[in-house]
Amino acid sequence: MRLLPWYAAAVFVFLHLPLLVLAVFSFNESRFTVWEGWSLRWYRAAFGDAQLIEATWNSLLIGAAATALATAAGTLCAYGLWKRASRWISTSLSLSLVTPEIVMGIALLAFFQWVFRYLGVRLGMHTVILAHLMFCLAYVVIVVLARLRTMDRTLEEAAQDLGATEWQAFWRVTLPALVPGIGAAALLAFTISFDDYVITSLVAGVDSETLPMVLYAMARRGANPVVNAISTLIVFGLGLLIVAAERMRET
């Protein structure tokens, strides 16, 4: 039992050291994995790469759209479930959480191909946004529902006794109290959307290459310090969002 703290420390090192080492080496002057001094060379290279910039914009746009849609639908759903549970919705959402990404990706691809055969539409930004909406939804519902469960149900009743309609009670009493939970859910949804590779790569079209797709291709091609730089930026950016989300959830 006295060894427990050392064991825990070792696991924490295992969890964090690889990312720290990667971050340090993203500032390495050398093209190779040999330390030659500090430099911003690879960051400059990353920011000068038109394909990377365009992919980042695509990712931000997809993330923003999917987050907005998923947060709106998910918040309403959590509220509905809080009023009274719905078995098939809860089960479907749980199932969507544990469906392997590759299965969800090809199911969506098959669906889009099948629908588009009749409509004459192609894969692109819109299909990626719809796919992201799908896999972010369950996370939003979970976070918002957790927040709702800490709330007092009698507040809405009191509002209605005082003459508010159901919608007014929701809009003016419950929703304002939910804002931190909704904010946390939105940030979470955005990070999940921004990071996805497997599903995105299956349903993306030629105009909708995202940052993870470019990164994936670069990483597979071989050692490239630019990937270290972008990785560090992503970890730092998403890390900030997660810290913000946790703060909101705790208020």
Partner: peptide, 23 residues
């Protein structure tokens, strides 16, 4: 109110999850 709240998610789940699995 509850039905309206659940409708968007039910729609998304049906069209983008259950129907794709059925396909």
């Amino acid at each position: 109110v509850r039905a309206w709240c659940l409708a968007p998610t039910a729609g998304v789940l049906a069209t983008l999850f259950l129907i794709p699995l059925a396909i």
